[in-house]
Amino acid sequence: MTRLELLAPMTGRVVPMEEVPDPVFSEKMLGDGLAIEPSEGLAVAPMAGSLVVFHSAGHAFAIEGPESVSVLVHLGLETVSLKGAGFERLAEVGDTVAAGQPIVKMDLAAIAAAGLRSISPIVLPQLDEGWRISKTNAATVQAGRDVLITIER
């Protein structure tokens, strides 16, 4: 059996995907996952792998890990509109990253000042059938330390 653990990429409160106020995420159009309402702005890699996507606006990244499993971390909602303001990039596309490695820092105050939500969905897009997903029961998680989602097949 293969088992992969995804660490919480951010510190904060765990929110069910269904409660994210954006249909792309709440209706799981891309895939299942969880969201975090962050209390700190730093986002780290949830697993080791390759940073395959890192939007030029800095608000979202994806890591491809073992078994072709990828994970998308979307920082805040509608944050693409900030065009990079409020995001400090700490890694770049193509980088090989370790689990827990800092990827981007989001300025929570700047996001709030822009009238945007900082709730951050973590999605497993295009996950092959056969994987079993189990999600943490914890109310709050700490970035790079707590396991957020475990998948097995």
Partner: peptide
């Protein structure tokens, strides 16, 4: 495309996966 296109007036959004950029 994933799901259905979201159309608001002449503004349209289409969900395509993680490589939209």
């Amino acid at each position: 495309m994933v799901g259905r296109p979201m159309i608001i007036g002449k503004g349209v959004q289409v969900v395509v996966g993680t490589y939209a950029e």
